[in-house]
Design a protein around this nucleic acid. Sequence first.
DNA 1: TTCTAAAAGGGGATATTTCCCCTTTTTATA
DNA 2: TATAAAAAGGGGAAATATCCCCTTTTAGAA
Lengths: 214, 214
Amino acid sequence: MNKIDIIIVDDHVLFSQALNGLVSNYDEFNVVTVLNNGKELVDYFSIENKQPKIVLMDIQMPLMNGIEATQWLKDNKPEIKVLALSMEADEDTILKMLRAGAKGYLLKDIHPSVLQHALKEVYASGFYYTENVTNTLLNSIHNKEKPIAIKLKERELEFLKLACTERTYKEIAEVMFLSPKTVDNYREALFEKLGAKTRIGLVLYAIKEKIVIL
Amino acid sequence: MNKIDIIIVDDHVLFSQALNGLVSNYDEFNVVTVLNNGKELVDYFSIENKQPKIVLMDIQMPLMNGIEATQWLKDNKPEIKVLALSMEADEDTILKMLRAGAKGYLLKDIHPSVLQHALKEVYASGFYYTENVTNTLLNSIHNKEKPIAIKLKERELEFLKLACTERTYKEIAEVMFLSPKTVDNYREALFEKLGAKTRIGLVLYAIKEKIVIL
DNA sequence: TTCTAAAAGGGGATATTTCCCCTTTTTATA
DNA sequence: TATAAAAAGGGGAAATATCCCCTTTTAGAA
């Protein structure tokens, strides 16, 4: 019988090796190899012509993460189907992974039988989306209206970062080689754009949006 | 031959089941059961008298985490040795786990053979510390001098949180049912304690120390 | 109850922030 | 090159924040 070839990519060796044993036990599947990160996957295809049907892909990995690796596969080996396998359940990660071309998204706390089912589905139907992922997708459509990511200019960003220090505006002006009055203009412009009423508001915004990291 | 009984506690079912297969393949070990979190472990011992020699314990788990569960084992089943198995490599977590009584601390990106070796060591010697953990321990001794966690009084904390809003001090005084002058005293006291020169400094401190969450 | 320290309140001065309305210089582009 | 928009700079004033030094009230220990 012809087994379905699978490659596992995950930097947690203990997990990937254990998973290897698990999947190999299923009659339908054959684990071709286990790799540690996206980079190793790219390297693998540079010396190996035989292609797996499915790649079980972790996301958070060193050197080349799962999103980049999935994108690479979409661009270079579009026949191979990627099934994402991750701990991150946040909307942003899921969307990035799906946009990169993943055919499914599983969390690591699922039961092994779900994995088996998902693998079969991906092979047979070409995709497998859990309820979780479907909800996330629907959610993202609804929320597309609100976050009109405020665009800040280079100089405004620079000022904003300096505003998140104990410098006075006069000192900020010196650092930026500007007149205090010009700095005052930046301040006022940002108050308007970000809906702040005080400098504290600027600081809170900058930290919330990770413009400054503490 | 008498195998060494092991219990696996981990909320990532896929991982724990895969690990089950892996460890069961080793001749020396026998996985008695696989549980999803600390709570299940406590429940397990309330109906089961047979004790495993080793518990492979995840840390981040719902209901009852690995640290609490390890502490419980130390208090109630001190003969059972806990080998921590986690993704978190930060000093704080490692120390908490060791203080709770763990006999070893492994990261999930180790090679299966290391796990096998660690299990054998824990059974034979009673403990197994990787270089990583040893370094962390040494490090923690060196750094014990600096973080003299600044103690803030209830009312100061309250003020500090309000200072991280766009309220003026006058408004803060109203919220706290205090005179603006008293609020000014709190401000000055915190400037002194936290080494701040401006209100921005207070905000940065509060966020850095997670006194306010954004 | 007396004493003491912490909590609360205050006067008054100076520095900084915030605001509004304006001009000049630079940059991009039609 | 004309022209509009963006960037930079400014005057002046009111509101806040910061600072220093002081008194009164409250709560708890002696």
